[in-house]
Amino acid sequence: MKARLKVRRGAPGEAGGYEHYEVPFEQGQTVLDGLRWIRVHHDPTLAIRFSCINANACKECMIQVDGKTVYACTTRLAEREMTLEPLPNKPLVRDLVTEIAPPDERLSE
C-alpha cells in the first residue's frame, strides 16, 4: 500500500510550498511513521517535532492533516493523498514544526 503525502515545507521568510512524497506502509502505520520514513529514505531536512514516537505521551507532534488538527503519531496512513500542514494558529518554525511551548518555557531574548 502507498500513501501520497503532500507536505507543506519552509520557514518564515522563505518561499516555501508543498512537496509530494509517496510512502509505502502496512496496515496500522501512522502519519508519523510516514514522515520518519521520508526523513530516512529521502530528505533528512524535513522538520517535524516529536519525542515519544508512539505512546501519545509527549503531545509534541500536533499538525494538521487534511485541515484537521491531529497527532501525527495516532493518525493512521491511508491509501490516498493526505495533506500535511503546520498548525495554523501557532508561530511557524519550519516545515511542520510550530512554537508550541508555553511562553514561560521559551528562551527569552
Binding site: 496500522g28 502505520q29 508512539n54 505512546a55 501519545n56 505521551a57 497527532y71 495516532t74 493512521r76
Partner: peptide, 9 residues
C-alpha cells in the same frame, strides 16, 4: 503485534 498506537509498548 498487532500494531498499537498511542500506548507505551
Amino acid at each position: 503485534a498487532p500494531r498499537l498506537v498511542g500506548m507505551d509498548p
